[in-house]
Amino acid sequence: MFGNEEKGKKYSELEDEMMEVLMSEHWNGGIGGFLDIGPHEEEGEFRQEVDVLCVGDGMRGRATIKGDYEEVLRMKGGKRLERDELRKFEGCPSSTPYFGAIGAEIKPIFKPTNTNYEVKQVPRIGYVTIFPLLLQLLEPDDPKLVSLLDLVESHLLSRHGLTSLSSSDKYYQRENGPGDAPYWRGPIWMPINYLALSSLHHYASTPSPIQSRSSSLYSSLRSSLLNTVSSSHTSTGYFWEQYDDKSGEGRRGHPFTGWTSLYLNILKEIYH
């Protein structure tokens, strides 16, 4: 009627194409997970840099003063930037107000050892690395699942649930700027943990080399999560946006009555 059969075929072919890319380009056997690809440098160090914000006419601009924190401080005699000085910087409109409280902003930067930025696999271990597992894209007998479960157990499984980023990662719990607390860099998030449980539940119900392992991982992760959310709820009265991977305490937005409510699905083992 609407040519739905041809449509179905088109999407089925597309799915095959995408699976092929997933397996051939994103899989990294050494790490045992799927990696993003992009212009990247892994080696380097974190430094501090001075950056100046300027605001005018209610819109946000950014000045171009940048440099090593110590150097800029020396240059400025360790003082805050005054209004007139701030206006001199390119990019700041003439209406830029004086930043009494801010002055120069110090922000962290990553200084890579080399700056070739070759396009390559990005060796992070976290939620993204196991995404095909989370969305049940792999056949139960795919040996990659064994590696992925290894990775989950050795890097992401905490006593309170799956952490968003491995504690061995250089970005683990690292803030992204002054006052910009780590968000998906360590804390435990309910929707992704729900997907993981849903997946493990699926693989635990299908005969395969990972069936019994999925089953035991499912049970321990499920009980960790139920305990995390319920003990936090009991002590604070709230559901929370995310949970700390070390203490299990609720963090950030609260009351958070959105996807943290997947607690009920997990409790009653009702998945999608």
């Binding site: 890319v21 997933l22 992009g38 212009p39 890579p112 939620y127 969305l135 980023l165 860099r185």
Partner: peptide, 26 residues
Amino acid sequence: LDDYPRSERVDPSSEKHVDCLSWGIM
């Protein structure tokens, strides 16, 4: 996953993301 770290450089003409692809397959 807002601040989840990806490649250091942003480049739409070469970046490929595992989660984006996974959602696409789904």
